[in-house]
Every structure is written in structure tokens, then in C-alpha cells.
Design a protein around this nucleic acid. Structure first.
Lengths: 737, 737
DNA sequence: ATGTCGGCCCACAGCCGACAA
DNA sequence: TTGTCGGCTGTGGGCCGACAT
């Protein structure tokens, strides 16, 4: 019995004390839960509740906003998240609110260890305006969106508890790898090596376990102290525990209860402390007054993603979705693993047509491929769909996801060197810009469809996806407003065109190194397979051969052998094109299938392919048009919008528009350069590639179409083109009657 | 081992289910606590939470208002009761609000079994008005005020748990009497008689215990099932359990946790569910709008009696309190027993002079005789003092409590045979009543003091105790408006003089049987010891020889051998006089001892003694004056009041007053007859004593003095003397300039 | 590699009368 | 009469390797 020591009386405190820790030293004042203030990407784990542990408990798929970052707040999602009858004021909120994250505090409920966050946000009208005008460029950092757990916490494991683990009869059987990876090494020379482990939970409470290596065959076990933990935490078979070894070797201990949305009451809450401080009324008030508001976010209790990173949201704006499209989505499986599921978009319609018409919240009706699964909504939001883009259906249809796109007509480029006072060109100025416009083009919509038995609706089915009924956002312009990295302390008042001067310089090195995302490796952008040009966004974590994301796997297989000229290594951030014969675009006008959208489409992949052979300048416009015009939907088929769309495409009388008609056939290599990516490139390459490209390559064009059927205010469409300080800026502005 | 049976698996449900029961069949909708609606004196105990059990758990001293009864709501007390910062509106409430009790729902907290009640009350301006005008007569039913447990629940016992009872080592030792009284009989022929007991707690949850009679010597024990109960309820040594056998033999089981106000957190709550629905703001709003409001009353958590039965409150208005007076008060001791404590009034002042000037809430500063005791306030409200009246101090002073008194000038007696339509005389009508009044008298204040070294303040110290700053209540009239019994469904609109006709009849039997209180036995009223006349209120439950209420014990000893003419048996409801030499009265003008009252006094005991030698008619007036003029206090010494007082006493020019000046030396046997007591007497004696007394003895006199220093409205003083229908009624009404 | 089980030990809940207050 | 204690016993927590997957 050598080496056996009794831990019976050194386990943990018996009292359930509320341990409040706050990394900022400013107490969260919540006595019933632990808390930590998260500022930026600070990984400080000194107190009980550390970011990594929180994120690990929340799960890898949980998005945690960062202080200073920009997010989109979705009232509808919030409504789903809380168990509160909203006041009528709440319904006056827009369907989405662009916000700057003021503060994020991490909490864990004292009783259940349920993780939640209290997020303070300030509606940001600047961002909103810029987004509407298409001036915000989506910065792509998946790390900001997805969880940090895997990348930043090397030594961790999560095990779903077995019946044996949770019975009173014995202890906890530690998987060998996990023990070797996370626990201090044992002296295996002893007959029964053992040691005492001390791990702190989310509240900073210490738990002590006897860790022994014994049995025949040998295995790692936690014995003494384990049942106390099980009992205190009320863990049952099916719940999961996770151990996490910090940098300095200290152990963290978290739990993930089994998701129990199925049969009625979730274990956790639905209506507990974490939902208290929200009070939708306060939110409604604050949002309408553009002042800071506070929400409580309990990610595991209700998977309603009502705070979405701006980039994810914006990207979804740029993606095409159509009935019949196939897609993938990531989910957490019951055993806390991650898994991709595929499904089919069966309809596109408002979730709540009366209260939030035009909202994209769960606007996609879907049917999942594996039917019997519950736990998944049959309505999803566009941004929930895997960012790698849509997946090819059964040979009949091609969805398109693009990494970097723009929204609609008209497009213009801001004056980078001589910003005006506001940072935005006003209406009068836009005419000035028109003079210098060049290389831009307006397309009508000619979108043959195939598959799905819906007859010729084509362009008449075009709808603009207006985020608000009054249709602001009808004019989208492209600017180069940079969204600062999430963890920055950059005052967001300062991010106007003044900053864009900096971009001017770094743009020098941009050239043909697009999208170096994730900061991990240079991007592999273009992959051409037998059928045409494909762009990948392959940042899925498919373990080769496990068959889970076989579709993506296949794309990788296709892409890699045929890699083109550019330096390419990791499959991150790759746009994906699909060859679909000569179909110029896919428009599914599935009239009436869902309640109030007749159909939805964007300028599709094949359209882009077609334009990809045009010379550079025009190319860019075409690409932008394709991207920006996706998701053009309005509530009713309107002759106005139809006329506008076709007039852009055909009427040369629109000021300067005729100059923008694309000629044809150029490389698409310069498509989709977010300015921020340029910055990243410059940083990564040390500004070393500053000279090669011709001046025109420094330009970024975008096209926005003002298509608005409800004319609550004068919609304008303008086109302008200006060159200032070596940078060309274009804007198309046209008055819509 | 015969007779042993295993109950281990039939104990109780392990799940802590919320059992909601409602005797009305209308669910209380509270899922976290049991509830029952109490209507009137319904003793229905069919559901889990029965009134008797609730009252037993609350304790015998807890007042539980009844639906339909009249109570006084005291905002200051409410403030002490809750843990809520009151809104400013709350401070605008009057210091006391007369209310009709609309509904009472009994609850018990699910987690702690803490009993609480949710009371709905409606401010009743009629009652308020009538009270101010002195038209309301205090009906005396102690049962309404005190708990019902003793009188209505015959088979019950309460035992404070010993260390052995609560240890895991053994079971619960049942006192023999208790077991025999409450439990089904055992078959004592068996060697170890045992049975299974099933008892339901406040929530209706069943608990099963093995009841065995064993050991040497034999004793009753609860074994199997007991520790489960202890553990579930988290009972510790010092807490008490109580068993209660209902009519149909079913067992009830309640707990009374040890009071733990001493060291910080009371076990129970301070801020739990029961305090939620109050929200002082809502109360403030409702009261100001005279609409129904709801409060939550947790009697054991905080002994703040902020709902007082009207009779108790009104009676306290009629009692004299003066600095230096000795008094008794009942308390629950730590072992859940009842005990009287005595103390000395050391000051009379506003508790919160700025916010509630003139409020009687805890207006008495007291010093307790047994010093070291905590748990007791050093400020008490007048109505908390034992209803039997004050107790004689250390030979220096005698307080006097009278059963039935009136308030102030002017007083009049209603027309018993011709009720007016409203049931209440208005001011004009009071003149009409004056005609039929008779036998009433007004006394000035001539109040020599002795004891306590305060110099000659006497009448100059006289203050009117105005319950509201504007001094309503300055004119009090006497009527015979009867407050219906609490449990009655009598519409309170109908309680006018019509009913008082009844009094007319029962008054016949009134004669000299005063204060048959508690409805238990004929009253022993007068007891004369060596030093003089004493009146007892001896309804304490002093177990002889335990030394707990030795003072009262002594009084009893004194009283009984010398009982006077009246039939007297139990020591209930006995007025007590104390001979204090020739000291005519005790007026302590302890100027400045408390903040804004210079002093306070009523017509004191010695005054009454002095008058007790006068012939009957005057006697009665004197008594009434003493009672009614008690608590005459104004914020400042006023010449007006002084003049008035002395003029009453000395000026024979006041109409009829000279007739009423007490001559001297008569028995005090007729002092202090509340009309209601007359009723009770009549009931108890079956109207049998209707003839013997001379006509004058059938009269009831009362004198009220309108002594108001702040003349916000014309104070009036009138005196009239009338004989109507064999009843003499007098009223003095004089206009005070 | 690890989930489950039987064997075993031991702490403690809990029933008993003895004893004393 | 009843509070506390020592004695006794049964239950179940919990550590162990065996065995099977």
C-alpha cells in the first residue's frame, strides 16, 4: 500500500462560497457568480476565472466578443435568448444594430458553473452609416470569430463522463493521453505512482484529487476527492469535465453539462441570474438613444447567436443564398465534439414579417440531411452557415461564397488623402467624384436557373435585402474604413478617413498577395481545377479521414494539385468557385415557397467567372457588383426596383455609367482585397513588396445598387470617380425617382 | 425484535417539489412556496397549508389579520420589515393607515418553511374618518388579536430540539405528554410498541416516521425517518418542531427555527421571495390612491408589527403612557416559549421626527429590567405594551390600562334608537346627539406627579399626541359604531348606529362586570392588596413556580385572597391599581430627554384613584377622561392647551362641568367599562344581571378633551347631558378659541 | 486503452438500553 | 421524565484489480 495517502480531509472547502474575481481589480459586484473582465486578447489567467477556461467551457464554437471590436446585435436573437416578454418598445429596434463592444465581463454561475458573459455595447452610427454605404471593409480573422481554445491553450482535454465516472462506486478514469498531456508526470518506477492534483474551477475554488496510476492494465485514475467534486457540481453521466493546464503548470477545471434542450427544462437556467441585468426595456431605450447597453449572454443555455462579429455578419451579406442551395454548418455534438452538418436551403423568408420585416435573422429555412436530429433549428441565419462558403448541391446548383465581397451599386472610393470633415463624401461631392470614375459598369440581372422546378422569374425576382423597412442602406458605397483589431484600444472615434492615409502606404505592398488570413501562412488564393476557377476558404478543421467534412476535403484535394502562380500553402481563406457550365448566374425565384420573399439571389459565381476574363479595372467592378448585389431582396416585387436594376444595366444615359461597362476577360487576381488585408500583408511582409504593381492596382472599386421599393426617403444612386493623391476613388450616385 | 418494521424506503419523496395548495381552489400561482387563502375564521385544514399550522409555526404572539377585518398599517414598521430602500413617495404616507383587509394568503417558503402572509388591504377612509371623530368603538376580542393556536388547536406540541434530537446518532425523543396527546395510541401490551406516523408539513409534503415506545425507562421515540427530516429541513439544535393533530386525526408538522437576529444574517431571509411583491413604491401609490395594496409579512424573520389590529391600535390610543411608567410586554423566548418582560418607559419621542412627526411607531423609549437581553428593541410602540395595562413600577407609579375607553373631546353618544342614514353622526348631527347624552363629564388636568426627579411641569407638559401633523383626531366623538367581527361578511357599510341598538339591550346587563377578557372565564377585576387597590390583567401563562413571571405571580397571590364583591375566578383581564400613598398622579415632564416631546402624560393613575372616591357618575367620567386624555401631547408646550386643561379642571363656568367634578371617595368598581365589554358581560351572563343596579349604573360616561395646540381646524369642546330611554348620555363640547 | 464489475474495507448512520440529571 | 452516551449493526462510499470491449 505504499504511496497511498489519504486526502479525505483536504479535499476542498465544504462551504459554497461565492468567489468573485476580477482581472481588472474592479469588482463585478455580483456576489452570486464569479466574474472577470475581458479586455482585448488579454490571456491573463491569474485569477480564478480565466478567459481560456471560460472559452473552453463555452465550447469552441462560441463566439465571445472582444472589448473594442465591432459586432452586430440582433434583437430578435436576443429575444430568443432571454425568457422575458419584451416591451413594445423593443419591437421598434432595427433588426440589427452595429455596435462597438465597450466591455465584456466573463461570469460563471455559482450554482451551476454555467458560463455567461455580460457585454456592454454602444450602438455605433458611424459604423452603421459606413456599412450602409459599403465603406466598411470586412476584416478577416477567423480567430476573432471562433473560439480561442484550441489555438491558445495547448494542454487541455475534455472528457464526457461515463456511468463509472459518476457512480459512487469508483473514481474517474483519465484517458492516458490526457493525463500525460495535462498532469504532472508520475514516477512510473513506483508500483502505484500517485500524486495530488490541485485544480481550480471557474470560481477559483480549488479541488484536490488523488491521481493514481494503477490497475492491470495500468491506467490513470482520479480517486479521492473525485466524488466530492461530482456531488458538489451535481455532475451526471453525459456531462463533461475539462482539464486545462496553464502556462505555468497550474491546473484549471471546468465542466460542460450535457446539452438538454430536448426534453423541456435545460439544466442550467433559462431564467436565472445571468438573464437578470438585460431587461429588454433598458436595451430598447439605450439602443434608440444610441447609448451603451448591457446584455447578458449565456451561450450554452441557449445557442441563440444574437451577437455576431461584424465580419461574419458582413460576409454573410456578401454571400449568395438561394432556395435549393446546399450548405454546411458547424455544431457541437452531444459529446462536446465539433461536427459539420449539411443541409438544404428550402426557403428564404422573414422570421417575423410583421415586426422585423427584412431581417436576416433566421431568414433561411433549411432541411438537414440527417433528418432525425433534433437540437437544430430548421431556420438559420445566413452568418451561421459555414464561412467557407456554400457547398455544391447534387450537381444541379452552385452556391457561391466569396471571401471578400462588396454589396451593391453604386461604388466609390473615398478620398484617402484629403478627407473632408466628416470623412464621408456628401451628396454634392459625389457628383464631383463621378467625373473621375472609370472602369465601372452596371449589370442587369440575367440569371437563368436550373434545378428546382421554378419557372422563369429571373430578374423580376430580384429583391433587395433591406435590413430595415425604411430601406436605409439603399446606397452602399465603398470606403476603406478600417475596423481596428478587436483587442485594440484605438478610440473608435478616430477611425475615419484620416487613418486611411496609412492604408495608402501599406497598399503599396499589396499587389497579388491577397488575404493572408489567420496570420498563419501566406494565402493560397486561386486554385483551378478541371472545371474552372475555384476559390477556397478552407479553414475548417477537418481531421483527414474522419469523414466528417468530406466535402471540404474533396475541395482541398481538387485544389492543391493545380495550384497556380502564387505562393500558396495553407488552405485558409480561399474563395471557391464552381464551374457550372455556361450558366451565367443562378437565380431561383421560388415564388411563394416562403411567405414574403419571392426569391433571392446575388450575382452569381458564373457571372463572376464570365467577368473574370475582363481587364483589371472593369473586372474589379464586376466582382464588386457580384458581391454587393447578393442578397438583394425586397418585400414585394417592385417595378421600381426592377426598372432601376435594368436601367443600370442598359441605360447609357445614367451619368457616366456607360463608361463602366465591362469590356471583358481579365484575370480576377485582384478581386476581393480588403484594405485591412492589405495592412496585414504589409505587416507580414515588412512592406517589402511596395513597388511592383501599377498605380491602377492600388484602386479598389465597388458597386452598390440602390434598389428600394419603399421610398420612405429619397434614395439616391450616384456614381463618381475621383483620383486624389494617387488613389482613385469612384462613386456612382443616381437619383431614384 | 418483534414489531420492528422497516421504513427506510417509504420515507418521503426525495425531490423537493413545490407543493402549492390553496384552500380556495384558486391557485396562488406561486410556484416557490405553498400558499393558502385565509378567509375569515375558516379553519379548513384540508390542504397542506392550514391556518392552524401556519399560526402555530408563526408563534402564538403573531397577529394574523383576517379577511374583512380592520387593521392599521404602519409604513414605518413596514420599512423595518423589508429590506428595500423606500422611494421618496413612501415618506409621504401617513404614519398609520386604516385598512380593511381584503385578502390574506398564507405561505411558507419552500426552502426554509418560513411562514409568511401576503395581505391585501384597502385603505378605508370611512374608518379613518370615524376613528378621527371617535365614532368607532373598539371591539374587544383578544382572539382576534392573538394567535389562534391555543384556543383552536387542542392537540399540539412544540419541542425545541436537543443535541440528541438533531445528532445523527439517534432519533427524536418525544415528550410523553406530547406523544400521548398528539399521536395515535400504541398497543402498550407489546414489548416494543411501534407504529408509523405520517405528518404533513406546511407544503403538504408527507413525512413518515417510525414511532416506537421503548427503552428503560420507556419513552417515546421517533426513529426511522427522523434524520431524513432533520437533514432536509436543515434543522439544528435549538430549532423547534411542532406536531399538531387535526380534528380528523391527521398529523401536521411544522418547524420554528431558532430566532437568530443576533449575529448578522438570520437564517431565513431578509430578502427572499416573501419580500418580493411588496415594492414599497406600489404601496405608496396605492395608499395615496386609496386603492388595494399588497404586502408581504414574514412575522418570524422580522418582528416588526407593521399591521396592527385596529382594536389594539385604538386601545393604545386610549392608554396613558408617561416617562417613568413601568410596563409589561410579551415576547417569545428563545425556546419558543412565551414570556413577559417588564421595563420602564424612559422617553417618548418620534422615531423619525423629520419624516413621520407625531407617529406613534416606536415612540416609546424603554429600558428593560433584565438588561443584558438583546433581541429586544429599546423602542416600542404603544400597542405592543401588554393590553392588560401598565404595571406598577417600583412603588412609585401606577399605570392603568382600561378595557374600554374613548378618545377625546367632544364626546357624544349616538342616538341608539334612531340611527341616521349614514350610521354616523356628522358634525351637525352631533348636536342632536348631545341632547340625548347624559352622564358625561369633562375634567381638567390636575396631575400632581411624584417620583422621578422632574420638577413641576404638570399640566404644562401636557401634549397632544397627534397621530398626524395636522392634528386630526383632535375632536373625538363617541359613538357606538361597532366594528364587525373580523371573520364576518358583514358589509362594513352597514355598521352604523343601527347595530348599536343591540348594545342598548346588552348594556342592561353590564353593571359591574368589567373586562371579561379572553373569553375564558369571568373576570377577576379588582384585587386589593395591602397597599391599596390593584387591577390585574393576569392572562399570562406563568407556570407556577418557574419564576418566569414572578411579578404577575405575586399579583395573583395578592389579588386572590382579597377579591371583592364580583365574581372572579381566573386572573384574566384584571385591572390593577397600585396604592402609592397620596400621590395623586404621575406626570413626568422629562423635558428634552427625547428629541421633540417634552413630555407626555395622561390623566394618571393616581388621578383616577383620587376620583375613584367620587360617586359613580362622576367616577365614570373621570375614568373616561383619564383614558381619553391619555397621550395628549403636542409638539410644543402651548398656553392654549394649558389653559384649556386647567379651565376644565377648575372653571365651573363650563357648561355642566361643575356637575361633573368628582367629589371623592367611591369605589372604583365601575371604572373602565368599554361598551363592548358590556356586551361580553351580557353574553357571558346571559343578560341575567339586568336589574339590580340603579339606573345610573347603566350609564356609560366618557369625557374627551379636545386639547389642541395647533389649531388647524376649530377645535370644539362640548358638554351635554341627556337622558334617553333610560340611558344617560352626556357630552361636553366647548369651542376652543 | 478504458468501461464496468465484484471484492473488500471502513466510516458512519442509526437502533438499542444504560445511566443520570 | 428525558438527555446523553456506549454498544452494536447495517448500509454504502470508495479503493482495488479482474475482465471485457
Amino acid at each position: 500500500m505504499g504511496g497511498l495517502f489519504d486526502l479525505n480531509d483536504v479535499i476542498v472547502e465544504d462551504e459554497e462560497e461565492a468567489v468573485v474575481v476580477d482581472a481588472d481589480g474592479i469588482s463585478g459586484s455580483s456576489s452570486s457568480s464569479s466574474s472577470i473582465s475581458v479586455s482585448g486578447s488579454s490571456n491573463s489567467c491569474s485569477s480564478g476565472l480565466c478567459l481560456e477556461l471560460w472559452q473552453a467551457c463555452a465550447g469552441p464554437l462560441i463566439f465571445l466578443p472582444k472589448k473594442g471590436s465591432i459586432v452586430v446585435y440582433l434583437p430578435q436573437g436576443h429575444l430568443e435568448h432571454v425568457c422575458e416578454l419584451p416591451p413594445s418598445e423593443f419591437y421598434n429596434l432595427p433588426s440589427h444594430v452595429f455596435c462597438r463592444v465597450i466591455d465584456v465581463k466573463l461570469h460563471a454561475e455559482e450554482a451551476t458553473d454555467e458560463v455567461y458573459a455580460q457585454v456592454s455595447m454602444a450602438p455605433d452610427s458611424e459604423i452603421e452609416k459606413k456599412f450602409e454605404e459599403g465603406e466598411i471593409e470586412v476584416e478577416y480573422e477567423e480567430e476573432e470569430i471562433e473560439g480561442l481554445s484550441k489555438s491558445t491553450t495547448p494542454h487541455m482535454f475534455c472528457k464526457t463522463l461515463t456511468a463509472s465516472d459518476t457512480s459512487t462506486h469508483g473514481g474517474f478514469s483519465v484517458p492516458r493521453r490526457a493525463a500525460e498531456d495535462c498532469f504532472p508526470p508520475l514516477d512510473y518506477n513506483q508500483q502505484r505512482p500517485s500524486q495530488e492534483l490541485v485544480a481550480r474551477d471557474l470560481h477559483g475554488v480549488e479541488w484536490k484529487f488523488r491521481h493514481i496510476y494503477r490497475g492491470q492494465p495500468r491506467r490513470h485514475l482520479l480517486t479521492t476527492g473525485w466524488s466530492a467534486f461530482i456531488n458538489k457540481k451535481k455532475l451526471v453521466s453525459g456531462d463533461a469535465v475539462l482539464f486545462l493546464r496553464g502556462e505555468s503548470g497550474e491546473l484549471r477545471l471546468g465542466i460542460r453539462r450535457a446539452t438538454q434542450f430536448k426534453a423541456g427544462v435545460p439544466f442550467s437556467l433559462l431564467c436565472t441570474e445571468s438573464s437578470k441585468p438585460s431587461t429588454l426595456f433598458a436595451v430598447a431605450q439605450a439602443v434608440s438613444k444610441k447609448s451603451v447597453f448591457h446584455i447578458s449572454y449565456t451561450p450554452r443555455a441557449n445557442p441563440s447567436e444574437f451577437i455576431v462579429p461584424f465580419s461574419k455578419f458582413a460576409k454573410s451579406f456578401n454571400c449568395s443564398f438561394a432556395v435549393g442551395m446546399r450548405f454546411k454548418m458547424r455544431f457541437e455534438t452531444e459529446d462536446a465534439a465539433e461536427r459539420r452538418y449539411t443541409g438544404l436551403i428550402t426557403g428564404i423568408s422573414d422570421m417575423d414579417p410583421s415586426r422585423w420585416p427584412g431581417s436576416k435573422w433566421r431568414c433561411l429555412s433549411v432541411r438537414w440531411d440527417d433528418d432525425a436530429e433534433i437540437n437544430r433549428h430548421n431556420r438559420v441565419s445566413p452568418w451561421e452557415i459555414d464561412s467557407s462558403g456554400s457547398v455544391v448541391g447534387s450537381g444541379s446548383f452552385s452556391g457561391l461564397g466569396s471571401k471578400r465581397t462588396r454589396t451593391a451599386l453604386p461604388l466609390h472610393k473615398p478620398d484617402l488623402s484629403v478627407p473632408n470633415g466628416t470623412g464621408f463624401p456628401d451628396f454634392g461631392e459625389s457628383w464631383r467624384f463621378q467625373k473621375v470614375l472609370q472602369g465601372q459598369e452596371i449589370f442587369g440581372f440575367s440569371s437563368p436557373y436550373d434545378g428546382l422546378d421554378v419557372p422563369n422569374h429571373r430578374s423580376s425576382e430580384m429583391r433587395r435585402c433591406s435590413s430595415r423597412p425604411n430601406g436605409f442602406g439603399a446606397v452602399a458605397t465603398e470606403g476603406h474604413v478600417r475596423i481596428p483589431k478587436a483587442n485594440s484600444d484605438i478610440a473608435y472615434k478616430g477611425i475615419g478617413f484620416g487613418e486611411s492615409i496609412r492604408f495608402h502606404k501599406v497598399l503599396q505592398g499589396q499587389e497579388i498577395f491577397p488575404q493572408p488570413q489567420y496570420g498563419r501562412a501566406p494565402a493560397n488564393i486561386f486554385a483551378q481545377d478541371n472545371n474552372g476557377l475555384r476559390m477556397f476558404n478552407g479553414v475548417h478543421q477537418a481531421s483527414p479521414g474522419n469523414g466528417r467534412s468530406s466535402t471540404m476535403q474533396n475541395y482541398n484535394v481538387h485544389a492543391q494539385p493545380s495550384k497556380p502562380s502564387l505562393q500558396a500553402s495553407s488552405p485558409s481563406s480561399v474563395l471557391m468557385f464552381q464551374q457550372a457550365g455556361n450558366q451565367a448566374g443562378q437565380i431561383i425565384g421560388n415564388k411563394g415557397e416562403d411567405n414574403n420573399y419571392y426569391g433571392l439571389f446575388g450575382v452569381t459565381e458564373s457571372m463572376a467567372r464570365k467577368f473574370s476574363t475582363t481587364p483589371f479595372g472593369q473586372q474589379d467592378s464586376a466582382e464588386n457588383l457580384r458581391n454587393k448585389c447578393s442578397f438583394i431582396v425586397s418585400e414585394e416585387p417592385s417595378q421600381d426596383s426592377l426598372q432601376l436594376a435594368t436601367s443600370f444595366a442598359t441605360d447609357p444615359a445614367h451619368g457616366g455609367a456607360k463608361n463602366l461597362v465591362p469590356s471583358s476577360k481579365s484575370s480576377c487576381r485582384l478581386f476581393g482585397f480588403p484594405l485591412k488585408e492589405g495592412v496585414l500583408v504589409a505587416h507580414e511582409h515588412g512592406m517589402s513588396t511596395s513597388s511592383a504593381s501599377p498605380p491602377s492596382e492600388n484602386l479598389t472599386f465597388s458597386v452598390s445598387a440602390a434598389v428600394q421599393s419603399h421610398l420612405e426617403f429619397p434614395s439616391s444612386t450616384s456614381l463618381s470617380y475621383t483620383k486624389v493623391g494617387g488613389l482613385m476613388s469612384s462613386s456612382l450616385t443616381g437619383m431614384l425617382v
